[in-house]
Simulated scan of single mutants.
Amino acid sequence: MDALRNDREKPLLVITGGLGRVGTALRPYLRRHHRLRLVDTATGAEPEPDVDIRHADIGDPDAAYEVFGGASAILHLAGDADPRHGWEEVFAANVRPMPVLLRAAAARAVPKIVLASSLHVAGEHNRPEFWPVSPRLDPRPCCAYGLSKVVVESLGRSHAERTGASVTCLRLGLTAWPLTERRYLGMWLSDGDAARLAHAALRSREPFGVHFGVSANSRKHWDTTSARTELGYRPQDDSEQYAGTAGPGGAPTCRLFDDSPDLRMRGMT
């Protein structure tokens, strides 16, 4: 009975795209601190004890308003994260739902929103002369996906300034994905560190912030100083343990890993 009462007293966290790859990796850690409501367009999910699963499209105003009821925070993971996709695809999945989500969050007076962004926002900075890349540099997206996240971050900033809600954008690296290629060693974010980062961001009450999300990798390609000092993020893992087993990379899907002038940004040119 005491355990049930304690669970009911936890703040309610709504995770959009909660049944996806990243949401699945984060849930075991986040449920220690929150009651979880998972919102996804996917169907057929197995019920989980004490987890509220809603089949809904957060691009629908009525659905978004309904699922955000009672939320203390929103962790927005839903969207298209494929850098091979063109602008029309990523716009429909990543940009078009954002005004609906933010209006519903404002109507429900949700005080905290964490938006999943991406290193691809700064992909053109992923060159040795910029390492470790600072999140304070101007965005230089390497693909249509990265550009869509630039827009998401801008909408998040506008929402924070307009409503007073705290909005944190996390530019996530390689998350909830096997580290099979050496080119990913500098951008790896372990499942454990991803959960620690998300929890730190959810606890923060910064007015607005943008931070890189990678582990404590020996190959310091992305500067996590702001996440450490402003959010209290304490990464514990290092991709170097996989350096001996990670294989060569395949053909680049965008300019995150290739600065050749003839590699066009898909859907952007």
Results as ranks from 00 to 15, higher is better:
9 E>G: 15
10 K>W: 05
11 P>I: 06
12 L>A: 13
19 L>F: 04
20 G>K: 11
21 R>P: 05
22 V>L: 13
25 A>L: 03
26 L>Y: 07
27 R>A: 15
29 Y>W: 06
36 L>F: 01
37 R>L: 08
37 R>V: 08
39 V>T: 04
39 V>D: 01
40 D>S: 15
44 G>Y: 11
45 A>I: 01
51 V>A: 14
52 D>K: 11
53 I>T: 14
54 R>T: 13
57 D>Q: 13
58 I>K: 03
60 D>N: 13
64 A>D: 03
65 Y>K: 12
65 Y>D: 15
67 V>K: 00
68 F>I: 07
69 G>C: 10
69 G>R: 13
70 G>V: 12
71 A>K: 01
74 I>H: 06
76 H>C: 06
76 H>A: 09
78 A>G: 13
84 R>S: 15
84 R>V: 04
88 E>C: 05
88 E>P: 07
89 E>M: 05
90 V>D: 01
91 F>T: 10
92 A>I: 04
93 A>P: 06
94 N>Y: 02
98 M>S: 07
100 V>F: 07
100 V>K: 07
102 L>A: 10
103 R>G: 11
107 A>L: 05
111 P>Q: 11
116 A>T: 05
116 A>K: 06
118 S>T: 14
119 L>F: 08
120 H>W: 00
121 V>N: 04
126 N>A: 13
127 R>G: 11
127 R>I: 09
127 R>M: 11
130 F>C: 11
134 S>I: 03
135 P>Q: 00
139 P>D: 07
139 P>G: 12
140 R>Q: 12
140 R>I: 01
141 P>A: 10
141 P>Q: 09
144 A>C: 08
145 Y>M: 04
145 Y>I: 03
146 G>V: 05
146 G>W: 01
148 S>M: 09
148 S>A: 10
150 V>H: 09
152 V>H: 00
153 E>I: 01
155 L>F: 11
156 G>F: 07
157 R>H: 12
158 S>A: 15
161 E>K: 10
164 G>C: 08
166 S>V: 03
168 T>L: 13
175 T>D: 04
176 A>Q: 05
176 A>I: 04
177 W>N: 14
180 T>L: 14
184 Y>G: 15
187 M>S: 15
191 D>Y: 00
192 G>E: 12
194 A>R: 11
195 A>P: 00
201 A>I: 02
205 R>Y: 05
206 E>K: 10
206 E>S: 15
207 P>V: 01
209 G>S: 10
216 A>Q: 13
217 N>R: 10
221 H>T: 08
223 D>Y: 03
231 L>H: 02
232 G>L: 04
234 R>M: 07
236 Q>K: 13
237 D>P: 11
238 D>P: 11
239 S>V: 00
240 E>C: 10
240 E>R: 14
245 T>V: 15
249 G>F: 01
250 G>Y: 03
253 T>H: 12
258 D>W: 02
260 S>Q: 14
262 D>F: 07
266 R>Y: 00
